[in-house]
C-alpha cells in the first residue's frame, strides 16, 4: 500500500558535476531510468522505499485474507479475493521496479523475513469483524491512494510506471470498502455497531500511515528535492482527513477524535494529537499482529521451498534435453 519512515543515507563522495547534472535532470522533470547514472544515496533510498512498499502490499494481503473464507455473500467473496489478488500483483510490480535498481527479489524477501526490512504499520492491526474489511478498503486504501497518486509522478521511471498501474487498479478498492461500510452503517443495530467498532480501531492507525509529522521527519527534504516524494506527510494526511470526515458523516459514524473540528477559515479539519509512541512501537515490531504476520509470511515461504526447487529442477531437465537435442542435430 505504501512505505513509511523512509530514510535517506548520507550523500557519498560522488563528483560534484555529476550530482549537479543529475539534479538538473530532476528539476527539468526528466524521469531517471534504470541504467542512468544516479547518486548512490538516491538508489539506496529508492530501493528501501520501493521494497518497503512491496513488502507492505504482500503483508497487507493477510489481514484481508483473514475474512475471505467468511465473506457473507458470493459477490463479496469474489470482490475480496480479487482485491487481495491485486495487492499481491502490486507487490510484484514493486519488487520488479526495485529489481531494476540492482536489488534481487530474493535479497528483499530475505530482509523482510529476517525482520530487517520494514513494512507499513497498519497491517499489524487485526481484522476482527466484517466491517473491518470495509474499513480497510475505505480508510487504509483511501490513505494509501493519497500517497500513491502523489507517487505516480515520482522521478524514477520504473517506480512511477508501477504506481500508475497500481493507482488504476486500486481505484475500485476504496469504493468497495466504502460500499461495505454503507451496508453496515445503514443496516441493523448490530451491523452499525460493527461499523463503529471498525472505525474506532482503524481511524488512528490510518492517520499514522502517512508517516511521522513533518517536523519530526527531517529526512524527507532530500527525497522531496530528488522528487522521489512530492508532498509532505502532513499535507497528505490533512488532505485525507478533509476528504474522509464528510464520508464518515454520510455513514452516520463517529470519528474517534473529540478534538476534530472544521476550521471555517481554511475549510480544513483540525485534529487531535496522534499517538506517535504507538506508531514507533508498531514499526519496531510490537504491534498486535507483527509476530502473526511475519510467521504467516515465513511459513508460506518455507512451505513453498520444495515447490520452487521442483520447478527449478524440472526447468533444468528441460534445458538439458534441449541442449542434447541441439548437439545431436
Amino acid at each position: 500500500m505504501y512505505s513509511q519512515g523512509l530514510r535517506d543515507s548520507a550523500a557519498g563522495d560522488e563528483p560534484v558535476e555529476l550530482l549537479a547534472a543529475f539534479q538538473a535532470r530532476i528539476d527539468k522533470e526528466e524521469k531517471i531510468e534504470p541504467r542512468d547514472w544516479m547518486p548512490a544515496a538516491y538508489r539506496k533510498t529508492l530501493i528501501r522505499q520501493i521494497s518497503q512498499h512491496a513488502h507492505s502490499e504482500i503483508v497487507g494481503q493477510l489481514p484481508e485474507a483473514n475474512w475471505v473464507t467468511r465473506a457473507p455473500t458470493l459477490k463479496r467473496k469474489l470482490i475480496l479475493l480479487a482485491k487481495i489478488q491485486d495487492e499481491a500483483g502490486h507487490g510484484l510490480y514493486l519488487y520488479s521496479a526495485a529489481e531494476t535498481l540492482g536489488e534481487s527479489r530474493k535479497k528483499m524477501y530475505d530482509d523482510l523475513l529476517s525482520g530487517k526490512a520494514k513494512y507499513s504499520s497498519i497491517f499489524n492491526y487485526p481484522t476482527l469483524n466484517w466491517a473491518d474489511i470495509g474499513a480497510v478498503g475505505w480508510l487504509v486504501d483511501g490513505a494509501a491512494i493519497m500517497n500513491q497518486v502523489a507517487l505516480c509522478r515520482t522521478s524514477y521511471g520504473p517506480y512511477s510506471r508501477s504506481m500508475v498501474r497500481i493507482c488504476k487498479e486500486e481505484s475500485f478498492h476504496q469504493r468497495q470498502g466504502y460500499e461495505i461500510m454503507v451496508k453496515m452503517a445503514h443496516g441493523t443495530a448490530q451491523q452499525k455497531a460493527m461499523a463503529q467498532d471498525a472505525i474506532n480501531r482503524f481511524w488512528w492507525p490510518a492517520l499514522m500511515m502517512f508517516g511521522p509529522s513533518d517536523k519530526d521527519s527531517p529526512h524527507s527534504s532530500q527525497s522531496m528535492k530528488w522528487k522521489i516524494k512530492r508532498f509532505s506527510n502532513d499535507d497528505l494526511r490533512q488532505k485525507f482527513i478533509d476528504a474522509t470526515v464528510p464520508q464518515a458523516e454520510y455513514l452516520g459514524l463517529t470519528i474517534p477524535d473529540k478534538h476534530l473540528k472544521l476550521d471555517d477559515a481554511t475549510g480544513s479539519y483540525t485534529h487531535g494529537e496522534i499517538d506517535w509512541k504507538e506508531f514507533v512501537n508498531v514499526i519496531k515490531g510490537n504491534g498486535p499482529c507483527n509476530q502473526q504476520r511475519m510467521a504467516a509470511r515465513i511459513k508460506a515461504h518455507k512451505d513453498g521451498a520444495w515447490v520452487r526447487e521442483a520447478a527449478e529442477a524440472y526447468a533444468k531437465k528441460l534445458q538439458n534435453s534441449k541442449d542434447n537435442k541441439k548437439e545431436v542435430a
Binding site: L62, V68, Q85, L92, Y95, G304, R308
Partner: peptide, 17 residues
C-alpha cells in the same frame, strides 16, 4: 481461496487466486 496470500511464491499466489 484459502491459498490466497499463502502461495509458494508470489506469481503462483496470483495464479491460484
Amino acid at each position: 481461496a484459502q491459498w490466497c496470500g499463502h502461495g509458494p511464491f508470489l506469481e503462483e499466489d496470483l495464479a491460484l487466486t
